[in-house]
Write a protein that binds this DNA or RNA. Structure first.
Lengths: 136, 136
DNA sequence: ATAATTGCAAATGCTTTGCTTGTGA
DNA sequence: TCACAAGCAAAGCATTTGCAATTAT
């Protein structure tokens, strides 16, 4: 949990610069799904001179290395989260933007089945639920 | 099926210009999911002077009126299709870009259930399967 | 008549990139 | 050392918009 991202970089031979270390640290400590601007804002508190271009390059690099995950939710700019072992999907609060993660094995299995019935091998998928909080 | 879009415009009081009629016609006749460039290309065959800005404005208008549907599949620009009565989801061929539509009631129900379990009323969702064709 | 729509080009917002200088292994 | 990374500003790409001219009702 702590700075898992930095260790993954080392494991994968990703060169660790000061800037990348900072992005790794901030992403490791983030429990939400920040976009690049927000990430840049957070990293800037640790290094006021880091450029947004570097943040863009770094998230792209980490994403391609499978270290973080990129999400393009409806109508928003790309948001990022630390990659986890188990796959999960997202529910987005349409009023607040708040994101809740969930796992549902039944849906996963059905997706695979649907793809196979159509003659396809399921390689990837995207499932997003958009909802509004029920007041109780 | 024919030019359903034009009748929907009339029904909704959407002013019908020559350009909008052409976009309506082309979208009505399209069985695939063209992006704006492709749409502009097709409409240009009927009116060589129509501008891409008008096509952008028109698909936005039709989308907001619920007459056509916009999709932002992974890594592509927005694609459009005529709106249908029954909801459906999409399977995208990762090799060819070909799109297959499908409906699965079980998945729909499970999505609703998941949202409710998390304290949300399901308002919208996005389900996309990405796969590669199985050769038989 | 007149409010809405078009075409054009310029502006936008997010993201990427070329280039020169700086730096990690 | 030296291939790679950072910072900056400029470029790219899809999409939107301001404005003057045109058009549907």
């Amino acid at each position: 949990m702590d700075n898992d991202i930095e260790s993954k970089c080392i494991k994968q031979g990703v060169r660790l610069t000061d800037q990348r270390k900072l992005v790794a640290k901030v992403m490791s400590e983030s429990k939400d799904h920040p976009d690049v601007d927000e990430l840049h804002r957070r990293v800037s508190k640790l290094d006021a001179k880091i450029s947004i271009a570097t943040v863009y390059r770094t998230v792209k690099l980490f994403d391609e290395a499978g270290i973080i995950a990129k999400h393009d939710f409806k109508g928003n700019k790309a948001r990022y989260e630390q990659a986890t072992q188990e796959h999960h999907d997202h529910l987005i609060d349409i009023n607040t933007g708040e994101i809740t993660e969930f796992v549902n094995e039944d849906i996963e299995k059905l997706q695979k089945k649907v793809a196979e019935k159509l003659g396809y091998k399921l390689v990837d998928h995207r499932l997003e639920l958009y909802g509004s909080k029920i007041k109780k």
